[in-house]
Design a protein around this nucleic acid. Structure first.
Length: 820
RNA sequence: GGACCGUUAGUCUAGUUGGCUAGGACGUCGCCUUCACACGGCGAAGAUCACCGGUUCAAAUCCGGUACGGUCCACCA
């Protein structure tokens, strides 16, 4: 045991251990160990977006506590780290930063520019994760933009294609008619625009009656494929199933029932056109309606528009309204304000076009997704509904193709002569079909040797939804199933329906097995005022600054203890400061103990008799161990943190440490055996606290461990020490009750001193304790010397008499009289 | 509009199978320089656990409804 410095300097100590742990390779997963049971964490690779943010801090604190706890429990823990690099965000930033357009330059050149930016962001985030003290195995680090990861993603695409899960079809996409390109939802801005709501008569077939339909886009009438009404609507319910005649083009379309129709808006009857808006998309897919491609890629009406062909949409609108008016079908026109989607870059109104897309058959897996979601453990449990509800609510299969550049290419070519689809062979990947031809002599169907590579790329979720298999070592390690399914998949409330869902369907389709056995959910980090933290709301807290200012161990306490797992938690500086103060208290308790234990030689068993309060604190410590272990098992970090802190601060420090001071300082009065018993107990209890707190505050606990416990314990780090097992033989309800009584008596006399405005060091001449009965008197007598020495009582007398005067110890028959 | 979650002292928050005299933190007030720690100790005030109804011997906890707030999704023909 070495003596400890008085002050805890978190900045230098945290830094020191972060580098030492790396040197020690302390957190490396042992791929060759086939004895220890593995525990794998499916660390979600974050999107490198710049500096680490408080949301990342919350997540990685959760992951790290789990990793450290499981490691101490003896598991061979795999805590991998990857980076989910591809995405629109990076593309847009690169375009802005360099003032370029991605489609104006070679794709690989643009991709390289993206990679440079991603690397910069990764370095920033990695720095943050290291500063947080995450026990990541950095030898596992990967990037989804690396060729080897492309290989995994493409390999899984090919295998899914072979299994029949991947298919080509058409699907509506957002389309900018000016740029003539598909754009993502995220690239669409919504603006309020003034428009007209036209009330148009649609005659019912074989009837004199007319439906009045309100629409803001009459130019889409030629693409009308149905009219939908709410079946509960008294006006129209009876017409469901009948035919209606579309004006101007005189085509018959069905009247369909759809509960989503708002009976109070417009006329309650809606024309469904392909495609006037996103609602049309949903309705068409839901009711399996035909598609009329009315708009071409440059925003002109196609020949499907009949006499309106070749007009631009706004020209067509004028023409259609004129024609309707002449035909007497336009009842009235109202001014309205409505929201329209516009292209983020050029502000052109976005249209919806039907385009060729790649799909994964996910709908047919919904039932098995639900079954697995029910079978696995969720922390907290109610979060499973989010996945189940999502799987049930899906209207169409997963569109996995994107019209972007910085992404994993779809390894497919098309024969220029016959259109045959050539999917890459397993051994060809990684490959970019935009840059390389298929490695075959000719088209297997027509023999032609001219191919065009697929221009579309994969959705970013195609990269990140195979992590469970990749982390486990698939496809290269033959023993990858040892680590699959992952023990735990961490997810945020906001990404359950994407990340957790796609992982589920993807692995189920690929391997017929679920990817993880449990899900740990984190909430969102809120800023001041309980709103989502964001720079625009000015409640943003930069994680690197917070870490530098307060230290990782304090920030981690906020993250772990700031709220229940799964609930949103605000970043509160008071919580962090409380964490800091606790670290100080914790450190000081050990500094103090370190002095008192200077001459103590650690022993496994003790030959001398323990005193009542020794047994009392040991029993309570054992109960704490049980409770904290259970809390960690259930990922209830906040409960564990609170229990550890309250017990340490308010039971061990405030009472036990105070009570044994005299035994330790003055063996000539209390005897050497009593001193030894206190030392033994103190050493044991503090070590237990150190271990329980280690997953939460890894730096502080490690530093103390190295001073006080390294020599006698043998583990090179507290983080690989064996997690304590609950020992019921040490627990005694009777002893705890007796000890609690001593503490209560102590507290009352201490209170009495305070009320007399005396310092706690002021000696008391006489204290008379009326115990109420013989048994209670015997118990208090056992703690008499602790009471007397703690409170500096010169003459303490305990009698079994029952009285009703003096200070009553609450909920007992014990009365106390003091004389100063 | 839909789904899910929440509503506990001035503020934030815990309370997981109903037994609570509702726990903790910040803040406020009073006292104590006490030999680890004033980043400390002792103590006080402060909550009809959103509202209404139900189940029960017993409800902050379970059920139904209302109001308000949050998150995600959708968003008007």
């Amino acid at each position: 045991m070495q003596s400890m410095p008085k002050d805890y300097k978190f900045a230098e100590i945290e830094q020191k251990w972060q580098s030492k742990w790396e040197e020690m390779k302390l957190y490396h997963y042992d791929w060759n160990d086939i004895v220890r049971e593995p525990f794998s964490i499916d660390t979600p690779p974050p999107y490198p977006s710049g500096e680490l943010h408080m949301g990342n801090v919350l997540n990685w604190t959760y992951f790290d506590i789990v990793a450290r706890f499981k490691r101490m429990q003896g598991y061979n823990v795999l805590f991998p780290q990857g980076w989910d690099c591809h995405g629109l965000g990076i593309e847009i930033q690169v375009e802005k930063a360099n003032n370029i357009r991605k489609r104006d330059m070679p794709t690989d050149q643009f991709r390289n520019m993206c990679m440079v930016l991603v690397e910069k962001y990764i370095a920033m985030m990695k720095e943050g994760l290291l500063k947080l003290g995450s026990s990541i195995d950095w030898t596992t680090e990967y990037r989804t933009m690396d060729p080897n990861y492309w290989r995994c993603t493409q390999l899984s695409f090919i295998q899914l294609y072979q299994k029949g899960y991947m298919y080509q079809g058409t699907h509506p996409v957002n389309w900018c008619p000016r740029d003539e390109t598909a754009i993502a939802d995220a690239e669409v801005d919504h603006v309020k625009k003034d428009g007209n709501l036209h009330y148009i008569k649609f005659p019912l077939v074989n009837s004199d009656e007319c439906f009045l339909i309100a629409t803001s886009r009459p130019e889409f009438i030629p693409a009308c494929v149905a009219v939908k009404v709410n079946p509960n609507d008294e006006r129209y319910g009876k017409y469901v199933g009948r035919k209606i005649l579309v004006p101007l083009v005189n085509r018959e379309v069905p009247v369909i029932a759809d509960e989503t129709v708002d009976m109070n808006f417009g006329t309650g009857a809606v024309q469904i056109c392909t495609y006037g808006d996103k609602d049309d998309v949903k309705t068409v897919i839901k009711h399996k309606l035909p598609i009329i491609q009315l708009i071409s890629e440059n925003g002109k009406i196609t020949k499907a528009g009949g006499k309106y062909a070749d007009l631009y949409l706004n020209q067509a609108r004028v023409a259609v309204v004129t024609d309707l008016t002449e035909a007497g079908l336009l009842e009235k026109t109202e001014k309205i304000q409505h929201e329209v989607g516009v292209c983020e870059r050029c502000k052109t109104t976005v249209e919806i076009l039907e385009r060729k897309q790649w799909f994964m058959k996910t709908m047919e897996l919904s039932e098995v997704v639900e079954k697995n979601a029910v079978e696995i453990s969720w922390y907290p449990d109610y979060m499973k509904n989010r996945l189940i509800d999502w799987a049930k609510s899906l209207d169409w299969d997963w569109v996995i193709s994107r019209q972007r550049l910085f992404a994993t290419p779809i390894p497919v070519w098309y024969c220029k002569s016959c259109g045959e689809i050539i999917v890459a062979k397993l051994e060809w990947v990684p490959i970019d079909p935009k840059l390389e031809a298929p490695r075959i002599d000719g088209c297997p169907k027509c023999g032609c040797s001219d191919f065009s590579g697929e221009q579309d790329v994969m959705d970013t979720w195609m990269d990140s939804s195979i992590t469970c298999a990749v982390h486990a070592g698939w496809p290269d390690r033959s023993d990858w199933k040892r680590l699959f399914p992952a023990s735990i998949h961490p997810s945020g409330t906001d990404i359950i329906r994407t990340w957790a869902y796609y992982l589920m369907v993807r692995h189920l389709a690929l391997f017929g097995e679920r990817p993880f056995n449990s899900v740990l959910i984190n909430g969102m980090v809120l800023g001041d005022g309980g709103r989502k933290m964001s720079k625009s709301l000015k409640n943003y807290v930069a994680a690197p600054e917070a870490l530098a200012k307060n230290g990782a161990d304090a920030i981690r306490q906020w993250a772990a203890g700031g709220g229940a797992t799964g609930s949103d938690i605000p970043y509160r500086i008071q919580d962090v400061e409380y964490g800091k103060r606790f670290l100080n208290k914790f450190w000081n308790a050990f500094v103090f103990a370190n002095q008192l234990l200077e001459d103590y030689v650690p022993k496994a068993a003790l030959s001398v008799e323990l005193q009542l309060l020794d047994k009392w604190i040991l029993s309570k410590t054992e109960n704490l161990t049980k409770k904290v272990t259970e809390s960690f098992e259930k990922c209830q970090f906040n409960i564990a943190v609170e229990d550890i802190r309250n017990f340490t601060w308010h039971i061990v420090c405030d009472y036990y440490l105070e009570a044994i001071k005299d035994r330790l300082y003055r063996p000539e009065i209390h005897g050497n055996e009593s001193r030894l018993a206190a030392q033994y107990t103190l050493y044991r209890v503090l070590y237990r606290l150190l271990q329980l707190f280690a997953p939460v505050a890894p730096h502080l606990t490690e530093e103390i461990y190295q001073y006080m416990y390294l020599d006698s314990n043998g583990y090179k780090s507290i983080h690989v020490s064996e997690w304590p097992k609950y020992d019921s033989s040490i627990v005694s309800a009777e002893i705890e009750k007796q000890g609690d009584l001593i503490i209560a008596v102590l507290g009352e006399i201490r209170n009495d001193k305070a009320q007399n405005k005396l310092s706690l060091n002021t000696p008391i001449k006489n204290v008379l304790v009326y115990a109420g009965d013989v048994e209670t008197a015997a118990v208090i007598t056992k703690g008499a010397s602790d009471i007397a020495s703690t409170l500096k009582i010169e003459n303490l007398k305990i009698v079994p008499d029952k009285i009703t005067q003096g200070i009553q110890v609450p909920s007992t028959e014990v009365y106390i009289q003091t004389e100063y």
